[in-house]
Design a protein around this nucleic acid. Structure first.
Lengths: 216, 216
DNA sequence: GACGCTCTGTTGCTTACACAACAAATCGAG
DNA sequence: CTCGATTTGTTGTGTAAGCAACAGAGCGTC
């Protein structure tokens, strides 16, 4: 069983987790997820192999965890300083998803049919969580939803996720994509007009971006 | 009492020792040895303060240990690949001492009357150890010593140490100094002629170095 | 002097990690 | 298929590290 090392406050726990994540990250640069063993991870992290199992169920759980934290980190970097505007917060979320896909395409190109599905399912689930939280936090700022919260969250997350998945970075930048998706997501959740006006201004900028891109 | 953590093979031991040494090294760049506390070291190393005492008696013991290991490291880098020639080995030792002083002068200038004495006494002791080992290892390659091994080692180590201490890096390079000291040390321990000839060749190179230095 | 404060070592107890050994699963070679 | 080799999870036991609490030393302030 996993999670034998419980106390996240204990310096020893955070240290070995960091060691595991670091060596795992390094090894992923050198070989694929499937060919790499727990023993290798433990050896490079200079921890005992049994200790690994005290922290993660297996290497896939570790992989999910790494995906989660990098996504959360991107989100944290893109959240606006002020958290008082729900529209801005939602845009930051969509934006982060696009940036994540951009980064993913750079490090692990789409042809990879081995590890990418693991990332993708994780990203969709995480998007779902974030959207759900956002919806619950902002029910009073929104008009009537077209569907229950959980259904809405499901659809929004899949919409953003699917669009990001099918996106080939060539035609438009991650930023531009994010703006377009945000405008549509705003409608899905019934954001009021005033916030939507914000999106239209941004969309104007997108059209200029597209002109620039198509002019070559 | 110290040295509660005994087993040097245990990864936990080496890990925390490295953490302690690393944060200690960092802190020494920021403040003096005397103003810095065990608590600071432990905090930066993210270990418990009590754990520190399981490894080192106090911060001076840690300091001695750091000096020892950096000296040993310089020596390891300067030892010839082939350990079969006693003369070369001895020269490497002297050379390392000079390089150590060079490095010491760069990071911790002589006017410092607080920490330098701690380094110096340590270096002399360590030189003494190395010379003693060398003498024992090469008794059969040497002529009759002018004094017992321990006395000879004592005098050689003090001679090298004192010369290094009084050396102000301006007049000649560490390399040049090392060559001159080596030649004299070779006599002290009664190295045979053939090995001494080696030194003369090197000394020829030194004279060129000195010309370069004096030409500016 | 008395005080408050910080740093020093030390101690008893708890928890996380190391290690060896194990059975079971996986996999490639013959 | 069978064999050997490797990897996977899991377990019991010893030890290092975390933590809180302590008395004592040093040190500046009133």
């Amino acid at each position: 069983m996993a999670q034998g090392a419980g106390n996240r406050e204990d310096p020893r726990v955070t240290r070995t987790r960091e060691l595991i994540e670091q060596s795992f990250y390094e090894l992923l640069m050198e070989k694929s997820l499937h060919t790499l063993t727990i023993g290798e991870i433990a050896k490079r992290a200079r921890i005992n192999r049994a200790t690994f199992y005290a922290h993660f169920e297996d290497k896939y759980a570790l992989y999910r965890h790494v995906v989660r934290t990098t996504f959360a980190q991107i989100l944290a970097e893109n959240l606006p300083a002020q958290l008082d505007d729900p529209a801005l917060e939602l845009r930051a979320l969509v934006r982060s998803a696009c940036l994540f896909f951009e980064q993913l395409n750079a490090t692990c190109p789409p042809p990879d049919r081995q590890t990418r599905p693991l990332v993708e399912v994780q990203v969709q689930a995480q998007l779902n969580e974030y959207v759900t939280v956002w919806l619950h936090k902002n029910t009073n700022h929104l008009g009537a939803l077209a569907a229950p919260v959980d259904i809405t969250a499901e659809m929004v997350s899949w919409a953003v996720f699917g669009a990001g998945l099918d996106w080939d970075g060539g035609r438009q930048s991650a930023e531009a994509l994010a703006e377009q998706l945000s405008a549509l997501v705003a409608r899905m959740v019934g954001l009021p007009r005033e916030a939507a006006a914000d999106s239209l201004i941004e969309q104007g900028r997108n059209e200029r971006d597209e002109e620039l891109l198509s002019s070559r």
